[in-house]
Design a protein around this nucleic acid. Structure first.
Lengths: 214, 214
DNA sequence: ATGGAGTTGGAACGTCTGTTCGGGGCCCAG
DNA sequence: CTGGGCCCCGAACAGACGTTCCAACTCCAT
């Protein structure tokens, strides 16, 4: 992506510099001030272009909702050890990570190579899949799924969810549709299921699946 | 700083998880929703405490102006680096590991954690799966399969095989039946296929499957 | 000139968001 | 009982913020 007008380059540089100083993102008006632009609409105009060109992403109607792409912050280079805190099966409750005294002594762990490690790896945990109920998510009996506590999952994320009414754990892709939620199997040939938003409890977002064979 | 009320711990966990998913910080009302709190003032109250206790910093009057203080170190363990020598798809020939001058310079690699490393890890290689032809083996597009050259596969092994007549690469479980070979999909609901022994060339035995999700 | 595409400027609208205020339970020492 | 921390609730205020609309400007090929 070569073509980038000076104004856009200037804005991009400002955002990068701002990001180095603060852990949150600049607002439109801060960009305006920092780049000596006389109107917020000019910022919006150029930021739109930057988004269209793939330099960043925006979350509409969200303050400071700019995300830089290709600028993965502080990816850990070393091997991460993730505790396997239990099993997940269709009909049995999922274990949830205990917040207190997390690094227990005797839990089994799995190590994640750097290539698999997401941006923030502090609170990862893993579950061993029991049974064949996740077949539609291309997940086999015995697989290990690595999860991250999901605050406010985004559309399309593969999440581990607990359906309260059905008393069932499931791994599906998450889509918000008004006050309901569509859970879409990873296997696209299968039909999605619709559930009320207050019937689904999202425990985590799947960041990796590991299968070890004999 | 030991004493941290459950509500505060909950909020802290939510912020950390949110931060892992988004590059910007959650708003007070998002914390409220994510922690099932019924008022923004409760969030403000507890976030104030978290700030006073030194867990985070706030920039007043700034949307999403929360900054987490302190991040954790990681540990390093020994891990095996496996070259990804190519892709495997249904209709195209599989690459085979070159025995000579193996450690090429510019090949992509994937690191295997110790738990995944089999006994003899010297000649491991990996392929990236292209397309959805391995769905019946519960292997998705983009998955990485780690292989070991299989001199004499045992019954039940999951092998990467090349069907000469059909000119097709496939991942199936291997069963010898007289002078023919039964290739059984991992998905037990699907029918096995029978091929003549001299029509199948076993390239390797799958020792691990790794799937990384965004 | 002339027109269009790309860009800037100014202002306003509506919402998002941090913050504050008054009130109300709960628990325990006095 | 009384009072005071401690925590939660609902509502509202004021400012921060993303977004939109329209006019004007530059540049360039026609």
């Amino acid at each position: 992506m070569p073509g980038l007008r000076p104004r856009q380059q200037q804005i991009l540089d400002f955002i990068r510099a701002y990001r180095a100083d603060h852990s949150y993102m600049p607002s439109v008006r801060e960009i305006q001030a920092g780049c000596a632009i006389s109107s917020t609409s000019v910022v919006d105009y150029n930021v739109r272009i930057l988004e269209r060109e793939g330099y960043l992403r925006r979350s509409p109607d969200i303050s400071r909702g700019i995300e830089l792409v290709g600028d993965e912050p502080e990816r850990a280079v070393e091997l991460i050890s993730v505790p396997i805190i239990g099993t997940i099966a269709a009909g049995s409750p999922m274990p949830v990570p205990e917040v207190t005294g997390w690094p227990a002594e005797d839990v089994e762990t799995v190590s994640l190579p750097p290539e698999l490690t997401p941006r923030h790896s502090e609170q990862l945990y893993a579950l061993r899949v029991k049974g064949y109920s996740m077949i539609d998510a291309l997940i086999d009996d015995g697989d290990i799924v690595v999860l991250r506590p999901a605050a406010d999952p985004r559309d399309g994320d593969l999440v581990a969810a607990w359906l309260k009414l059905e008393e069932e754990a499931t791994l599906k892709r998450f889509y918000r549709e008004g006050d309901r939620i569509r859970l879409q199997p990873a296997n696209t040939q299968m039909e999605p299921i619709m559930v009320a938003a207050d019937n689904v409890e999202v425990y985590g977002k799947v960041v990796a699946v590991i299968r070890r064979l004999e």
